[in-house]
């Protein structure tokens, strides 16, 4: 994608802005969000849409842990403003029908939004290649340490289509030449912004996350194209190693291929397992149901730590 703005707080606020942008573009009143979306992002969207009389429709999950595409056929597409897909989804599962969803949206003049994990893009096709209108994501995994919720940065990009760019929130920096013919950078398309348009601006809630964005740029420059792929492959390998090992003590909820995160279900209540892990100084997975938890494994988790986690769970089940 060619146009990126500056900037949003995090993935959730980028997504909410993308949906607002969709509403400005086609003035329709229905927004499709999959059940496999991060619930925190969903809360942000719900908050932002409060009072706008927009109908949020949840797309169910099929037996593979992916978005149920049959659901799309039951809808009247002329009412739909935008559709969102998260890749990999909240359960870590790859959404394989990304291209179908983007094509379906284009056919019905629906704004398509893809939420992506930047590191996973070394392995899977990017939203731009798949034909999405807007891409959102979080810069946290690009070299930013965890810090009680922030500061992070929300990534927001669109295709170079003026119908989209003119409705884009936030600041846009363009490249130009100065009087000496030297390259320079400046803010462009400022008539969308709050200085000129007040409450009619495309957004009043963007923020300067430049420090975090520069850290993202440094991190990506250091990794480069080979490093990013190596990192993504290492995350993939370690998470698959962990998932396989975890099957000694529980069951994977979905058999589909995944990245970084996976859902395990146990015969025992997960609260008891989690408490036992905490007592051993291990922070377990995120509870999703009475017997289910979402586990995340990245390059910071050593093989030894994964083995210890599985052994410790084995002690209580």
């Amino acid at each position: 994608m060619e146009v990126v703005n500056s900037s949003h707080y995090d993935w959730g606020s980028s997504l909410a802005e993308a949906i607002m942008m969709g509403l400005r573009i086609n003035s329709r009143k229905k927004v499709l969000l999959p059940k496999s979306i991060n619930p925190l992002h969903k809360q942000v969207v719900e908050t932002w849409l409060a009072g706008k009389e927009v109908n949020l429709v949840e797309i169910p999950v099929d037996q593979e842990g992916r978005m149920d595409l049959d659901f799309l056929d039951k809808l009247d597409p002329t009412e739909v403003s935008s559709i969102y897909v998260q890749q990999p989804n909240y359960f870590g599962v790859w959404e394989t029908e990304m291209e179908y969803i983007a094509d379906w949206a284009r056919k019905h003049n629906i704004v398509s939004v893809a939420g992506v994990s930047p590191i996973s893009l070394a392995l899977v096709k990017s939203p731009g290649e798949l034909g999405y209108d807007i891409a959102v994501g979080d810069g946290q995994e690009l070299g930013i340490p965890l810090n009680f919720g922030g500061p992070y940065t929300g990534i927001f990009a669109t295709r170079m289509d003026m119908k989209l760019v003119r409705q884009m929130p936030g600041r846009i920096v363009g490249m130009t030449e100065d009087v000496k013919g030297e390259r320079g950078f400046t803010l462009i398309l400022q008539t969308r912004e709050q200085f000129a348009r007040r409450e009619k601006a495309t957004s009043n809630i963007t923020t300067n996350e430049a420090l975090v964005a520069i850290a993202n740029a440094v991190f990506l420059s250091l990794l480069g194209k080979d490093g990013l792929r190596e990192l993504a492959e290492e995350v993939y390998k370690r998470s698959h190693y962990a998932a396989k090992k975890m099957e000694l003590v529980g069951k994977r909820k979905w058999r589909s291929d995944f990245f970084e995160e996976f859902v395990m279900s146990f015969e025992k209540e997960y609260n008891k397992i989690h408490l036992h892990l905490l007592n051993k100084g291990i922070h377990g997975g995120l509870k999703l149901g009475p017997n289910e938890a979402l586990f995340c494994v990245t390059e910071v988790h050593s093989k030894e730590a994964i083995d210890e986690l599985v052994e410790s769970i084995g002690e209580v089940i």
Binding site: S221, L222, L223, G224, G227, E230, L231, E234, Y241, E299
Partner: peptide
């Protein structure tokens, strides 16, 4: 060239 050593298991 890579400016960052990815930890590998």
């Amino acid at each position: 060239r890579i400016g960052f050593m990815v930890p590998k298991e």
